[in-house]
Design a protein around this nucleic acid. Structure first.
Lengths: 252, 252
DNA sequence: CGCTCAGTTGAACCCGCTCAAGCTGCGTGG
DNA sequence: CCACGCAGCTTGAGCGGGTTCAACTGAGCG
């Protein structure tokens, strides 16, 4: 197991290592990445839409999210990110940011120059694959959210989101899939799902009334995972969780 | 310029070359990729959700699209793809397909083993970067579609989609941004935008009535690009078109 | 000619939005 | 200790954008 105290980049290593088996040399190379540590307060943005992103940003702790803002000021949250996520590969590799990355809670980050990321990726194939695949999983989540926003009704969307968050938080070592702390307002959940805060509230009430979950002081407890998953049409396949993926890669 | 007659993989080379300047060795390596050619009729799927995708699929001609189907049978189109696109990198690299890829028109494809793609990418960094970045652009388009589905009203969504298609078709050498052939039913456009065919019809009528465009026999003519772009809140940044990107990379 | 599929239009309906009011919990300062 | 303010949660009532259902039109095709 990788000790967090070894290096500020340890969360990154942990995540890459889940996705691909890395050699000692790979480990060393990752930890040797040049970086600048920073703490960013809640609500402050890491990168803004339209800016040139020269650095990529490793999230070491806290929660961040991606957002896009429409012409008339409405906000769409595109995904959330937890410890270990390379939260701005998308923007920095594409040069001009097409969306913003914002801190939901206070976060600790490490900025890494994009060239260093690319050099590392192509010098160490396993690392490169793990990183590339991570960006593909991001894409898969975007597709799922798009499908929710486009095709599912409000109740299903909310239930789906809470299932996803459960698995994501558990994977990142923050609670369990059915019991986790979620520091998000209903307004925020609305911007994730394309609903208003008022309607999110009503859908949560409906789910609570059916005994599927409780929410108190920012803690979500899912009382009936199977029931909530059914209500949310939730199938974890799209998350491409590492355990499944690595298993698949051992086969051939 | 790259001659299509050299190899069936020429469209791929053209596209990669737009994104990164490739050496002669890079060219050779791309064209040397093992592949199996196939022609697929309209409506037939290339990969189905849940299948293991061992091959990646280069689209040589025709139009393909990605779709996800919800529990109650509704369909979300996630993106469309044109000549030169590696239409199934997302699925094949992630192993188990989380969405389907379907032929909209009859298409010509070349199936390439995923291992060959990966070997090439990591042996030839420019090729690898071009390919990785292409998957990131796909992600950017997903985010934009998500934003449309979640936050924009029906009229804006339809106008936005037609602007995007214009630029995509022009980029692929199929017509111009304001005059292109679009072999899609209104039902299909509805599944792209999360609307019903009936409402797509009404929104198109509204856009036509304002003199922004005409649609006859599958040909879209945009009479007032600026007007349509405004109606659709359209900003091309998210497409990360090669000309802008390559220019950015010459700078540093 | 008759079939089918896509486009078109109207009318009624309903899911989710908007507006508005009241509530709850909590931090701040007197 | 309470008073105050503020942000987020809750609930109700009415509205409206988009859906649903249905009928008709027109083009392509065997």
């Amino acid at each position: 197991m990788i000790d967090e105290s070894i290096s500020p980049l340890a969360p990154m290593l942990r995540k890459l290592d889940e996705r691909r088996t890395l050699s000692a040399a790979d480990h060393e190379a990752v930890l040797a990445l040049p970086h600048r540590l920073e703490t960013i307060p809640a609500h402050r943005s890491v990168v803004r839409e339209g800016e040139v992103a020269t650095h990529s940003c490793l999230l070491r702790s806290g929660i961040a999210f991606r957002q896009k803002v429409t012409g008339d000021g409405k906000r769409q949250i595109c995904s959330i990110h937890l410890s270990g996520d390379m939260v701005d590969l998308q923007n920095s590799l594409l040069w001009v940011a097409d969306h913003s990355v914002v801190a939901l809670t206070p976060i600790k980050v490490a900025f890494i120059p994009r060239e260093a990321i690319l050099d590392l990726s192509f010098a160490h194939r396993s690392v490169g694959e793990a990183m590339w695949f991570d960006t593909l999983v991001d894409g898969s989540v975007f597709r799922e959210w798009l499908t929710s926003a486009g095709q599912r009704n409000a109740r299903t969307r909310v239930a789906h989101l809470l299932c996803e968050f459960g698995l994501r938080f558990e994977q990142a070592g923050l609670g369990t899939a059915s019991n986790y702390e979620l520091p998000m307002s209903q307004e925020f959940l609305g911007d994730c799902t394309g609903l208003t805060a008022v309607h999110v509230n009503r859908m949560l009430r409906s789910l609570k009334d059916e005994g599927l979950l409780t929410m108190t002081k920012g803690w979500v407890k899912i009382l009936d995972w199977a029931g909530l998953a059914k209500a949310g049409e939730f199938d974890r396949l799209y998350l491409h969780l590492p355990e499944n993926q690595k298993a698949a890669f051992r086969k051939p």
